[in-house]
Nucleic acid binder design. Structure first.
Lengths: 342, 342
DNA sequence: ATTGACAAAGCAAACGTTTGCTTATATGAT
DNA sequence: ATCATATAAGCAAACGTTTGCTTTGTCAAT
């Protein structure tokens, strides 16, 4: 049986309220000696406050609900870690559920969180492009969306700076002297794909380079589509000297296409990916890529939620910039080191 | 403001107890009409039970604490998903914390879970090879370890059947006609490495094949060590016609070594990995490998915990078998399909 | 001596449930 | 009409905290 305040009070020959104040209420005027005595006793008896009782009284659970699509998504996982990292320091725990991209499941999870009286909810979401129901279910409690920026609640959203990240990648290639840079896009209706394309175009324009439509190919995020697109790009004349793929998986496809066509990376064609998935550092040549700031987004989301919980005015929509990870595939003469840009 | 039982009682002109019984206690003899009326009202008002109040009363939170090393580990993530999958159906939620392989953090998390009155704890653990403190902190509440089987609490552990999995992989190569099969081990002091080696040896013996020590190399789970080991193996005379790598990452290294030495996979040398990491299906040739049963281990862990919570006699230590995923690198003439073995 | 002020600690209500026990009402048997 | 019985619903305690208010005790100032 766990020891309770009441028990402690009995042992110390004081009232429950005194014990409570000795342990939690730091400013209450207690005789220092009494406070000390009670603290010691609690320590000895291994007293641990019953958080559910406390929550009932305080109307605050110090629990935050987190919903992810799939636990296995490396991005979600890292974001969750960022969230927990931040929340732990603030004395919060997290409860987690996965939605499997199923709205009904998500809503079920949200309701379960509410029943549990969570102080707030974070939804790591790359499957909802717009939202209605879930937010409706969200009553008046604080919440934060991670990944997608919804215009109707911008101050509740944290997103990756995909456009900026694509700029980093493209600028890096330009800095290495490339003038004809191919771009392999992701699925066109994904915001990620659109933003990364914009970043690519930004840099070409900014550097006065020709914006050649034939250098832009559409993929579907999959390795095969990267392979196909790269075969097409590399058969162009004049051939692009660099390729920027909108994700690492397609970049892998590019590698195999280059291999099949007898091109060497990075000598004949430079390659940059996006996401920094784990295999990026394992493939040969190691893939230069832009790291998704998943961990940092998690931290930012937690910070935002904490602000809402504290009743503070939330900051503006947060875009977290990615980082360029320079490895071998871009041809920059920097050996297998992780280099931070900016 | 959330609506409460008391509020509902006022609206329905009955007592709180009646409302409670109408909604939760199914066997209590209430006038069907009354029960119906109350249910309807609750529905209309969007009543959601306050789980913290209920927990305080019931001394049951229906909350399970889960500790992982890092959220990003694909194995842990999948296990967590298995856990949640099972627990959700039983009306439980999970709270999660990561330990970063730090015992102090793990203990902190455990204590936090206890304060929250969790009904049980699951530790997904591949970093503790032996345990003392955490378990001590575990008082008398149900718990389950996933991954490592500890002899002092076998009935509380769920592990992968690594030996069996390695048998599957090796037998598959034998079935394809290979007689000289190289094995690249993981770090020797890891139980995974030891078990997989045993499985490899089992099969050679079982098939009356010579157990040539020179065919066994030690790696460190990393891609470079796989590369080196493969170079050595492929320089042997007579050359092994197949290689079984103790994880997919080293198998990737094997691919690059083969490439450098002018060997083709699977024509010149067949290759099987272990783990079924995401890139296994993206590389060329797609990697035949043994899938870690992470999801199933999660489910089994949840089942075990539920049994303990229900006060049932827990089953014996559970070893979950992996599955052979046949792709291209082994040379079995089955195109990019996932095939289940057994 | 009486009062006032202040320090220290106790009382009891409240948070939203569940549940053992009691009460009220209706039904049937005497 | 009286009583026992069954049915339906209410009362109140309990779970472990926190906290506004009250009480007790001590001491100094009148």
């Amino acid at each position: 049986m766990a020891i309770t305040l009441t028990e402690l009070a009995r042992l110390a020959n004081v009232s429950v309220s005194t014990v409570s104040r000795a342990l939690s209420n730091h400013d209450y005027p207690l005789k220092p000696e009494t406070r000390q005595r009670i603290r010691l006793l609690a320590e000895q008896m291994g007293y641990k406050p019953n958080l559910v009782a406390r929550s009932l009284q305080n109307n605050r659970t110090h629990l935050v609900g987190v919903i992810v699509d799939r636990m296995q998504s490396p991005f979600s996982a890292e974001t969750v870690q960022g969230i927990q990292d931040k929340l732990r320091n603030a004395g919060y725990s997290i409860s987690i559920a996965y939605s499997n991209r199923d709205q009904a499941l998500a809503i079920e999870a949200i309701n379960s969180f509410y029943s549990r009286q969570v102080d707030g909810i974070i939804i790591i979401n790359s499957w909802l492009h717009t939202f209605n129901d879930p937010i409706l279910a969200m009553q008046d409690r604080p919440f934060v969306f991670v990944n997608r920026l919804f215009k109707n609640c911008l101050q509740n959203c944290v997103g990756p700076g995909d456009r900026y990240g694509a700029q980093l990648a493209t600028q890096h290639l330009v800095d290495l002297g490339h003038k004809r840079i191919g771009y392999i896009n992701g699925m066109k209706d994904w915001i990620e794909a659109q933003d990364r394309l914009l970043g690519y175009q930004d840099v070409l324009e900014r550097n006065g380079l020709e914006l050649d439509e034939s250098l832009i190919r559409n993929g579907d995020w999959g390795v095969e589509s990267g392979y196909q697109a790269a075969r097409e790009l590399l058969s162009l004349a004049p051939q692009p000297t660099a390729i920027f793929a909108a994700n690492d998986i397609m970049a892998l496809g590019v590698m195999y296409a280059a291999q099949d066509l007898g091109f060497h990376i990075p000598e004949d064609v430079a390659l940059v990916g996006y996401d920094d998935r784990d295999f990026a550092s394992w493939v040969r040549p190691a893939l230069t890529t832009v790291k998704m700031p998943s961990f940092e987004m998690g931290q930012a989301a937690a910070r935002l939620l904490l602000q809402q919980i504290a009743g503070e005015e939330p900051e503006d929509a947060t875009q977290i910039p990615g980082r360029l990870i320079i490895r071998e595939s871009c041809g920059a003469k920097i050996a297998r080191n992780v280099v931070e840009s900016r």
